[in-house]
Design a protein around this nucleic acid. Sequence first.
DNA 1: CAATAAAGTTAGACTTATCTAACAATTTAT
DNA 2: ATAAATTGTTAGATAAGTCTAACTTTATTG
Lengths: 159, 159
Amino acid sequence: MEAKQSASMEDYLESILMLGEGKEAVRVSQMSKALRVKMPSVSSALAKLSQEGLVEHKRYGRVQLTPEGERVAEDVFHRHEALRHFLTEILNIDPETAAGDACKMEHTISPVTQQKLAKFVEFVNQPPEGPPKWLKIFHHYLRRAKLPEEYIARCLKED
Amino acid sequence: MEAKQSASMEDYLESILMLGEGKEAVRVSQMSKALRVKMPSVSSALAKLSQEGLVEHKRYGRVQLTPEGERVAEDVFHRHEALRHFLTEILNIDPETAAGDACKMEHTISPVTQQKLAKFVEFVNQPPEGPPKWLKIFHHYLRRAKLPEEYIARCLKED
DNA sequence: CAATAAAGTTAGACTTATCTAACAATTTAT
DNA sequence: ATAAATTGTTAGATAAGTCTAACTTTATTG
């Protein structure tokens, strides 16, 4: 029943979740700062989300997610996290760039991709004692643009 | 000096590149179909891109990229391809979903991420005789949600 | 070659999301 | 407790991108 939200609306919902860290209610001014938009933009977004039953907000009061709103916000957050982990842990991208990219991509990634991405990160962290050797070799490759002889040899043997 | 293009404008440019397959000029109606927008939307986009010197287009005529427009279109296309290859070859996502996701994400991915993603695909295809064993194991993991004993054993030995 | 069809454009409406300016409520501090 | 500062809202403007309807140009074809 929940109409699909726009990227903007997803951002507003997500920010309420993040700023409230789960349970606390949140101020319009906080959201305004966090999202780098002016307060009237927040007001207007909240009116809409309130209408749709995703947030609780009375004039001049604090903002809170409804259970339904929380569900949506958490979904956005999961997409964000799947992307961020992948970008930092596997592609070895610096945390700021990764967070920035995740923020933008989180709105367009499909459920399938989100899930597989999460699985991939899980897979990489699964082997006992952290990341597997091939990942270290990839990170070396990122720096040198060349594979170590030893890796090639091993791959050949495996096939 | 080229102003950064919006997602929409990037799509228009990319579609000219794709439909022209490099050299041929393209019709408004083709773009309209390919992008699933009505012709007036294409007209208006072309007016803007023409203004900015990215496309060549005279009334009722065919559409062509300028060298500068081609540069931008190819950049978008490279982002698209980096994403698509990653999604299909590594995450094992079906071609349609992958292409769809790539179309949406291509507009928000940063240059750093695009490059590292491409490197990753390159890395995976580098070992002689195609994809390395760990990738096959990941694909198995996607289906079974469990790592084969043998893989764990090998990782342990390596560390 | 004239009639019709197809392709393209123009004009104008609508939506979403943003902003500024002006006003109103609430909080803080004197 | 009242003045000042902060916080929030309302109203209205603007920009991007889409659409429909009406019109124009180009192409097709009998």
